[in-house]
Design a protein around this nucleic acid. Structure first.
Length: 285
DNA sequence: CGGTTACCCTGGATGC
DNA sequence: TGCATCCAGGGTAACC
């Protein structure tokens, strides 16, 4: 579920609590999430460690420990999330961070278990691993870098925006919102965008993500919540995602829901009036 | 190599 | 109520 704004919200929540705290014990309740390390080795390493910092790389949550303890990287994927409080006691707990002074527990939960947890020796090793599968962070990429990356591919602009190797952090919701804000059809070949369109798109990415972070991300159903168990407010103010048949905020014509090439089984929402493919760049369908 | 699809998992919503 | 079906915010291996 979580895309950049949801992960950023998790990280901000954790950052208020974890840095400086000593970890009495890390409990791995579901070893199948671990990548490249065993539950025993991870628990042994973490025991007694002190958290130095919590950060975000794309959609990764990075928890760095002091000394040579290394760092834990958590990829929440679709349904992963953290809980700082006990509403009842969350379901689907996969990791428990048992803190001390005062005693407290932070849970990492993941209903669908698609998320991943890994351990890295140090920040440089983690950075290298990240770089192998990711481009620049969507909040930091500059306009010309984005332009160069789009020029290199003819696939639809939406699958390209969601490709973490191109830029890191955008998923299905924010791709749709960004493209609507920029007035671009999701199937426009990436390399067909004009300089002006790229500038618009770059600006829309920054604006949409910043707004979503302010509103603490997007919640629906029983999915994503902030670390305090609260719903994010973005989907109450967004333009297209999840709004099939509802009026476009710009032109009031109905939003359309569809499926597009390159994105298997995932919905795409757009405004057929505000987001059109110019005749010169249309592809046969 | 670029682009696309199958598949990983499971809970919740919807429909009959 | 019970059961079947569909749906989902991500990512990667494998395929054409």
């Amino acid at each position: 579920m979580p895309e950049l704004p949801e992960v950023e919200t998790m990280v901000r929540g954790l950052r208020g609590v974890l840095p400086g705290r000593r970890l009495r014990r890390l409990e791995v309740r579901d070893p199948s999430l671990l990548q490249g390390c065993t539950a025993t080795s991870l628990m042994r390493r973490m025991r007694g460690g002190t958290v130095a910092d919590v950060g975000r790389r794309g959609k990764w949550v990075v928890i760095e420990l002091e000394g040579d303890v290394g760092l834990i990287v958590i990829q929440p994927r679709m349904t992963g999330g953290f809980w700082l409080i006990e509403p009842d006691r969350p379901e689907h707990i996969r990791l428990s961070f048992h803190l001390e002074k005062p005693d407290a527990t932070i849970w990492y939960c993941d209903a669908r278990r698609l998320g991943k947890v890994s351990w890295y020796q140090d920040a440089a090793v983690a950075e290298t691993a990240f770089g192998r599968s990711h481009g620049p962070d969507a909040l930091r990429i500059d306009r010309d870098d984005l332009a160069g990356r789009l020029a290199r591919t003819s696939r639809g602009i939406k699958p390209t925006l969601m490709d973490q190797k191109v830029l890191a952090g955008i998923g299905n919701i924010y791709a749709d919102e960004t493209l609507h804000r920029a007035g671009l059809h999701p199937e426009r070949p990436s390399s067909s965008l004009s300089a002006d369109e790229i500038t618009r798109l770059h600006r829309a990415i920054g604006e949409v993500l910043a707004r979503a972070i302010e509103l603490e991300g997007s919640s629906f159903d029983a999915g994503y919540r902030t670390v305090l168990g609260l719903e994010g407010g973005f989907l109450a103010q967004n333009s297209v995602y999840g709004r099939e048949h509802q009026p476009c905020p710009s032109c009031a014509r109905p939003i359309r829901k569809t499926r597009i090439a390159g994105l298997i089984g995932r919905p795409t929402y757009y405004c057929p009036t505000c987001q059109v493919i110019p005749p010169s760049t249309s592809r046969s369908r």
